[in-house]
Design a binder for these strands. Sequence first.
DNA 1: CTGTGACTTTTAGTCCGTG
DNA 2: ACACGGACTAAAAGTCACA
Lengths: 79, 79
Amino acid sequence: MMKNYNIKILFGSNVREFRHNKGISQEKLAELSGLHRTYISDVERGSRSISLDNIKKIANALEIEVFKLFIFNEEDHYD
Amino acid sequence: MMKNYNIKILFGSNVREFRHNKGISQEKLAELSGLHRTYISDVERGSRSISLDNIKKIANALEIEVFKLFIFNEEDHYD
DNA sequence: CTGTGACTTTTAGTCCGTG
DNA sequence: ACACGGACTAAAAGTCACA
């Protein structure tokens, strides 16, 4: 079972991937989610332990279900 | 698409369900996760916007993957 | 367009209790 | 064994200037 990985890195990597899929900038995602541009940057790089309410704002802005931001991609290692 | 639900209620309900499945008390979950007993109580009732690092601690304590705590149960309504 | 350090305000999270 | 409150401390939220 996956237990020792950095969840902030996993989450941030997934946000970045879905954002790229949507073809938008961090600034656009910030605008859509109502969060600050630099905050999005921090989250994507895994340097913020973001909480539930903001996790949901980002998922809504990306138009995806929240759980998808926690799916582990076997090709990557999150540490 | 599910967009207007309370993620704190969804998360808390799922924590409670998995905890019951495991047959342990809030106090035991608090001990296993390294969080405070009153905080677990608050989280399960959806009154706290818990952050990533602690979300992971709870998933680890429940011995489940993090994403499972965000799965929406169609039978319930989280508001 | 994004990364980062520094910063203030707000909330997450703890610890004491009660019924 | 759990809900809930008050008071507190640690950490997240939120913003900015600059690279």
